[in-house]
Amino acid sequence: MLELMIAAAATTAAGFIIWGADRRRKRYGILLLPGISLAAGLLAWIILQFSGAGASIDYSWLTWSVPVIAGPAAAVAAALILVPRRTARDNAELDRILKL
Rank of each mutant, 00 (worst) to 15 (best):
E3K: 10
E3G: 04
M5S: 09
I6L: 09
A8T: 02
A10W: 00
A10N: 01
T12P: 05
G15L: 02
G15Y: 02
F16S: 08
I17K: 03
I18W: 02
W19M: 07
G20W: 15
A21S: 12
R23F: 11
R24N: 14
R25G: 06
K26E: 06
R27W: 06
G29Q: 11
G29A: 15
I30E: 11
L31W: 15
L32D: 14
L32F: 12
L32Q: 10
P34C: 08
I36G: 00
I36N: 00
L38E: 00
L42V: 08
W45H: 11
I47R: 01
L48A: 01
Q49S: 07
S51W: 10
G52W: 10
G54Q: 04
S56G: 07
S56H: 06
S56D: 14
I57M: 11
W61K: 04
W64C: 03
S65N: 12
V66P: 06
P67A: 01
P67Y: 00
V68T: 05
A70M: 07
G71N: 04
G71K: 03
G71Q: 02
A73C: 10
A74F: 11
A75M: 06
A77H: 05
A78W: 06
V83Q: 05
T87F: 14
T87W: 15
R89T: 13
E93S: 13
L94D: 15
L94V: 12
R96P: 02
I97S: 13
L100N: 11
